Simulated assay, not measured.
Amino acid sequence: MHTVVTPDAEQVTRWLEQANIQFYICDQCHGLHFSELQSREGVVDARLFVEEDGLLLSTELELRPAAIFAAQAELSRLNMDYPSLKLFLDINDDALPRMVACDLLLGRQGVTFDQFIYFVQATLDATVQLLEDCQQADWLFWPDEDDTPPPESGGALH
């Protein structure tokens, strides 16, 4: 019989270790960051938060500013293509735009280890597929994009 527990941060940490899912604890937030997903190009943050009502898994993808309109136009379709994810755009004046993909496992009444692992793996798999779709659409910001070469000083442009 499976044991149903209301997961806290310690329990979630043990379950992730038991499932061999690599993560680290950030000193700037209370999230558990997923190393494999976070190391991918275009991913700003991929983390799991233990909240009062359950577990929130959230991934932020950094978008090119020129891709905002295309991403916004496709957002309804993407939400239908990825029904387990809630997708939205986060646009601030002081940072590059981001697409946020998140999923919530309600856990106030408890969850089992199998439910937890299924939730994490299914959400990570859907997020990886979303990431690949965004890469194919050329929406993601790449770190080397801001390293544009300076204009040559050989002649004036008019």
Rank of each mutant, 00 (worst) to 15 (best):
Q136Y: 02
P65D: 01
N92Y: 03
Q115V: 08
D144C: 04
P83G: 14
V128S: 01
Y118W: 09
D138G: 08
S84H: 14
P97F: 03
P149G: 01
D103W: 00
Y118D: 15
D114P: 02
L75E: 11
D90Q: 11
P65F: 04
Q109S: 15
Q72P: 02
Q129P: 02
F116C: 07
P143D: 13
L106Y: 14
F88T: 05
P143S: 07
L78V: 03
L85P: 09
A71V: 15
P149Q: 12
E74C: 00
E132W: 05
Q115T: 13
A126N: 14
S84P: 05
D144Y: 03
R98C: 13
C134I: 00
F69G: 00
W139R: 12
L85W: 06
D90H: 11
L124H: 04
D138T: 05
W139Q: 10
T112L: 13
L78Q: 10
A73W: 00
A67K: 05
A122Q: 15
A70L: 13
Y118V: 12
M80S: 14
D138I: 03
L105I: 11
K86Q: 09
F141S: 07
E145P: 04
Q72E: 09
F88Y: 12
V128M: 06
Q121T: 12
L85C: 06
V120Y: 05
Q121E: 10
M99E: 00
A95E: 14
A73P: 00
D147T: 00
D146R: 10
W139L: 07
G107A: 15
A101D: 03
T123E: 03
E132L: 10
A67C: 07
C102H: 04
P143F: 03
T112K: 13
I117V: 15
P83L: 14
L106C: 10
A66R: 12
A71C: 15
P149Y: 11
P97S: 02
A126D: 15
R98I: 04
Q121F: 04
C134F: 06
I68P: 01
V111P: 06
L75D: 05
E74L: 13
F119P: 08
N79Y: 09
I68V: 15
A70R: 09
V100Y: 04
E132D: 14
L106W: 09
D144P: 00
F141T: 02
R108L: 11
D94P: 03
F88G: 08
A126V: 06
S84I: 15
L131R: 12
L87P: 03
L96N: 08
V128P: 00
D103Y: 02
A126I: 05
L96A: 12
S76F: 02
L124R: 09
D138Q: 13
E132I: 10
A137G: 06
L106R: 13
P143T: 04
M80D: 14
F113S: 10
F141E: 09
D114F: 07
L89C: 04
D146E: 11
Q109F: 07
D94S: 10
L75T: 12
Y82I: 07
W142Q: 14
R77S: 07
A126C: 09
T148G: 05
V120N: 08
Y118Q: 14
N92C: 01
D103A: 15
W142G: 05
Y118I: 08
T123G: 06
L104A: 01
T148W: 11
Q72F: 03
L89A: 05
A70Q: 13
F69I: 00
D94G: 00
L130I: 02
V128C: 02
L131H: 12
Q135H: 07
V100A: 00
